[in-house]
Design a protein around this nucleic acid. Structure first.
Lengths: 213, 213
DNA sequence: CATTGTGAACTCATTCACAGCG
DNA sequence: CGCTGTGAATGAGTTCACAATG
């Protein structure tokens, strides 16, 4: 019934994980799946699965479970990944290049439409996927022309904030930030951070203290 | 006083973020920092900063703040990043290569000591950092010889679980998993996942629903 | 007297437990 | 009967508010 309860951010994260597992289930020929089984695959509690889905509707059949194909479609709709999204990426070093070529993006409708750098040696180069690297000064115009909605930052940390500011000036309100810096943005803009070293620090902490958190 | 209270995982994550900001503060010549300022930089509540640090000791001076150099050293010790850690990486595609060459790792004492793949065309190749790519079948022996404590998985999702199993058999109890699959491991092993698409899905969800979670 | 350190209050998230239903 | 859907109970994490103090 799409209640207006506030939905935990963790729920959205898990929905994305459920989606991935359901894809695999479908590939393996499953038609139905129980919350118990999906929970096991995703390493969460089965009540959690049911509650997460419950925020958005009643997708299951009591006594039976969830239809794999249907659930897949429902989650796609919830996450709004039932359509393509245009990305632009700034900072074409090793990481930026790797991100652009990454299989899981292409197959999921995330399209890298523009690539920017400020290194004169890189500008004008063609990436393996056939994209011409542009000068960062062309960002604003390009974003507008290509209808970019998500900006990806793979620059060194020192450049991250300036690039974020450029994206925001160009009305890009969603940023995926790979640099190990927190960037400051106005309220209209949302940021997701991916920081390798934070993840590694968690592992070293746990290894050192010999605990599982 | 290093109380034996249970420490939230989020606290460890933030500690790593504080650390990054403190490095920058030191670089900018600051000697002291208040919880208020650090909180602003990291986009959290200042009581949160104090509480997080409070789990591990009393590092501040009332009425003054925290000594930048000292706090840096303290957090390094807590996270156990006051020493080097040897990594091995499996799956030398675009992402694996990018990860190996990544600046922030090298400067932080995370050393990529071994690289594995199962593609005959890649085995034997030398990476830009001078590492010879080995056959995945040599994993067990190499891990042992080089004293590897952290394994990194940058393979396609279909290979992730098998590689994880190999790491675990070789007594590697900490895994950084870049593949968009949840891997199943025994209790002795800890896993941190980095999944681009989950992050992108969160952005699309928010863009579509025009909310900030 | 500005700022830390921390118990208490509060908010948010997860899990339980069972009614509801195909 | 078995599994979903969900209110109620529990648990975890964050923020408040203020006493403690260099």
């Amino acid at each position: 019934m799409t209640k207006t309860t506030k939905i935990p951010k963790a729920t959205i994260t898990r929905l994305s994980i459920y989606y991935r597992q359901i894809e695999l289930l479908e590939f393996d020929g499953y038609r139905m799946v129980s919350s118990e089984k999906l929970a096991w695959l995703c390493q969460v509690n089965s009540a959690q699965v049911r509650k997460d889905l419950g925020y958005f509707g009643e997708f299951g059949v009591r006594g039976v479970g969830y239809d794999v194909i249907d659930l897949q479609a429902q989650i796609k709709k919830i996450l709004a990944v039932n359509r393509d999204w245009n990305l632009a990426i700034a900072g074409i070093g090793n990481l930026g290049s790797a991100f652009m070529e990454h299989q899981n993006l292409v197959t999921r409708g995330f399209k890298c439409m523009a690539a920017f750098d400020n290194d004169p040696r890189k500008i004008g180069e063609i990436t393996p996927s056939g994209l011409k690297i542009k000068d960062i000064s062309e960002l604003d115009q390009t974003i507008d022309e290509l209808n970019i909605e998500i900006g990806v930052i793979t620059t060194p940390p020192s450049a991250a904030q300036a690039v974020a500011d450029l994206f925001i000036d160009s009305q890009v309100n969603a940023i995926l930030n790979f640099s190990p810096t927190r960037i400051h943005v106005p309220d209209c803009c949302m940021v997701e951070n991916i920081d390798f070293t934070v993840r590694l620090d968690i592992l070293t902490y746990k290894l050192h203290h010999e605990i599982r958190i």
